[in-house]
């Protein structure tokens, strides 16, 4: 290769970006001021996310920032990440009341009492970036895939828009981009993590309830988190190899 990776990224990035301010932002970030963006090698990373339900306050910052960062349309009702509120009554733990008004973006108006023996809590949701993802399994053409660094992505130039992957996701994390007519989903802010930044949702989470972790980096706090917490994934019986590790996940959550 005659040009190095950063140069290459910069050039493709510039070509793809239409507004000059955004191009400038990219150039700035690539210049490495936040953290020196290293020569990123896909084989050296394997991404996961940790969510601490005991820290989530349901402020909706994550869902809001995700839409800002990724240009997810505010209307209609699509979300790459959203926050659910669970309300579990002791007599019927299998049938919780769940709501997620506008994905949690506008907050959660007080609805339940805290003193009637029931419990309520928030559960942030996003793509599980499964290691054996059912969505990539069913894609007929290879337009969605697990990247070598463990992120499930969509190739928007190649996707047919057949919607089979949307059907196959057990967690409801996919939708069809109403403008581009292709599948869309959380990219784990792939454009950020490759530059050494954290995801937009993690960046704005005020309590640190969300953190991304690089499972291939021995110094990443993810290992300490997984060692010291009793973690669980969503719908473990689906055996999707989910890499979204929850601490404090209640049995009623699905």
């Amino acid at each position: 290769m005659t040009i190095d990776r950063r140069e290459f990224l910069l050039q493709t990035g510039k070509l793809l970006i239409l507004t000059s301010s955004a191009a400038a932002a990219l150039e700035y970030v690539l210049a490495g001021t936040p953290e020196e963006a290293p020569g990123y090698t896909v084989a050296d990373h394997y991404w996961a996310m940790m969510i601490d339900i005991e820290k989530c306050i349901g402020c909706g910052n994550c869902a809001r920032a995700c839409k800002e960062e990724n240009g997810v349309s505010r209307q209609p009702y699509y979300f790459r990440t959203w926050v659910e509120r669970y309300h579990v009554r002791p007599e019927e733990p299998e049938l919780p009341d769940v709501d997620s008004p506008n994905g949690g973006i506008d907050g959660f108006p007080e609805k339940y009492r805290g003193d009637d023996g029931s419990k309520s809590f928030f559960v942030p949701k996003l793509c599980n970036h499964c290691a054996h993802s059912p969505c990539t399994q069913v894609c007929p053409v290879g337009a969605t895939f697990e990247s070598p660094d463990g992120v499930v992505l969509v190739d928007k130039k190649y996707c047919l828009g057949c919607r089979y992957c949307v059907q196959a996701c057990p967690y409801g994390c996919r939708y069809i981009d109403p403008d581009k007519k292709v599948a869309d989903k959380c990219t784990l802010c792939y454009h950020r993590i490759r530059k050494g930044l954290t995801t937009a949702c993690c960046e704005v989470c005020p309590t640190g309830a969300r953190q991304i972790g690089d499972l291939k980096d021995p110094n990443d706090p993810v290992h300490e988190f997984l060692r010291t917490h009793k973690t669980q994934v969503l719908k473990p019986h689906m055996a999707t190899g989910s890499k979204l590790y929850y601490n404090g996940l209640d049995g009623s959550v699905r």
């Binding site: 399994q137 007929p140 053409v141 337009a143 190649y158 996707c159 047919l160 057949c162 292709v182």
Partner: peptide, 19 residues
């Protein structure tokens, strides 16, 4: 029904065998 009907030939070009 496809979002991009013109891309359907990709199913013949690069069929994903697990699908």
């Amino acid at each position: 029904h496809l979002g991009h009907p013109a891309r359907s030939f990709e199913m013949y070009l690069t069929p994903h065998t697990s699908s």
